[in-house]
Design a protein around this nucleic acid. Structure first.
Length: 366
RNA sequence: GGUCUCGUGGCCGAGUGGCUAGGCAGAGCUCUGCAAAAGCUCGUACAGCGGUUCGAAUCCGCUCGAGACCUCCA
């Protein structure tokens, strides 16, 4: 991969790197004379150096805050590429900088990552980019907080770490069932990205039901259309309330991606949608403009902005079994009109019913 | 030890000085052949102590508790 990327020689100006043996380090102290190393995580270099302990393998650095740009490959090292300093491999921070520069340019809009990467990794990325081209790599940094499990940090040593794939399959002793990707997404969006999120069975179950409630609302909404009614005028207060909820969706997302609050507003709108379905509220009371706006807003925020979509939960086999059961009953009752009806319905899905001596089965229509 | 974050009702989780967050669970009501769904109503929460203020979950201080980073590897 590295052979296809612009290699460091083009990337580094001689201002801050310093060479040592076959490795190259970034001189943080020197950089800090002109720029603030630590601006992202609110640190200053004096404290960093004062608080650092002596560790092995750091003899090559001028001081502990320096970081490797290019590391000399030891003979047994598998990763190795040629460079002006001999065979080696890029430092961790440089990998990211070179890749993002190649694919996103010298400066891009948003750089995400867990808050554990804020220091030192992202500070180093900033220093490298500024050192190289004078620009900070990202306009905005978006740091997500950590996830805990039953109030404890997930870690391998505690034996409480669960892989994403294990959530989805449900194959983990700490899980009571499988949780689909959309349920997990909903679960995470219910908290702010910068807050810690605690995973527990109770919380996951609650999220699953909440997600299904939202999806049911969406399904109802898709089938709703504006119906004018004679003698029914727009309820201004109610319409304003709905319009306000639509505004709030935008407002909360614009407020540092407050997805939790946005979901809250969406649920308030789902209440209105359900009331419309059961006739406790009419679209005429809402007014065409407000109704249309509500429909567009809810679909936009749920599906496009939050990325929450309906997952197919229905098992076609079960539905087919149910229909064949009705078919069998109709046949026994000699209700041939109904029998033909069921056959016609199934044929629409490419399924033909097979009446055999041994019983009833089905096949794909050929 | 240093720097920083957090502690909200049974559970999860928004909210940063006065205005209903929301979801799940629970109770009651309406609707209903039964059941479900849905709607309405309810619990009056902000770790503890003290302070600032007309007023604090929200600001300040202290205490207790939880967590992150401060070093390597990625």
């Amino acid at each position: 991969m590295w052979s296809r990327l612009p290699l460091p020689s083009a990337c580094w100006r001689p201002a801050w790197p310093m060479r040592w043996g076959g490795s190259v380090y970034f001189d943080v102290a020197k950089y800090n004379k002109e720029h603030h190393y630590g601006k992202l995580s609110g640190r200053n270099i004096e404290e960093l150096i004062a608080n650092t302990r002596e560790l092995e393998g750091q003899e090559e650095k001028r001081n502990a805050a320096d970081f490797a740009l290019w590391k000399k490959a030891q003979p047994e090292h598998l990763m190795r590429w040629p460079s002006p300093w001999g065979p080696g491999f890029p430092g961790w921070h440089l990998e990211c900088t070179v890749m993002s520069t190649k694919y996103l340019g010298e400066q891009f809009d948003i750089h995400g990552g867990g808050m554990d990467l804020k220091f030192p990794h992202h500070e180093c990325e900033i220093a490298q980019s500024v050192g190289d081209c004078g620009k900070e790599p990202a306009k905005y940094w978006l740091h997500t907080n950590m996830v805990t499990l039953n109030g404890q940090k997930m870690s391998k040593s505690l034996g409480n770490s669960i892989l994403p794939s294990e959530f989805i399959s449900g194959s983990h002793p700490l899980l009571d069932q499988a949780y689909s990707p959309m349920v997990l997404r909903f679960f995470m969006l219910q908290s702010h990205y910068a807050s810690t999120l605690d995973i527990s069975i109770e919380a996951l179950q609650a999220a699953k039901r909440g997600y299904l409630k939202l999806m049911n609302g969406l399904r109802v909404l898709r089938n709703l259309d504006y119906q004018p009614q004679e003698g029914v005028s727009v309820n201004e207060k109610g319409a304003q309330q709905v319009a306000g909820l639509c505004d709030n969706c935008y407002r909360s997302m614009n407020d540092d991606f407050n997805t939790a609050q946005t979901i809250g507003h969406l649920f308030n709108l789902v209440k209105k949608i359900n009331a419309l379905q059961t006739g406790q509220l009419s679209t005429a009371e809402l007014g065409e403009q407000t109704f249309t706006r509500m429909k567009e807003t809810v679909l936009l925020f749920t599906e496009e902005v939050l990325g929450l979509r309906e997952e197919a939960h229905l098992k076609p086999e079960n539905l087919l079994d149910a229909l064949l059961d009705l078919y069998r009953q109709a046949k026994e009752a000699k209700d041939y009109e109904r029998v033909d009806q069921i056959r016609a319905h199934l044929r629409k899905s490419g399924v033909v019913v097979k009446d055999m001596k041994q019983g009833i089965d089905w096949a794909y229509e050929e």
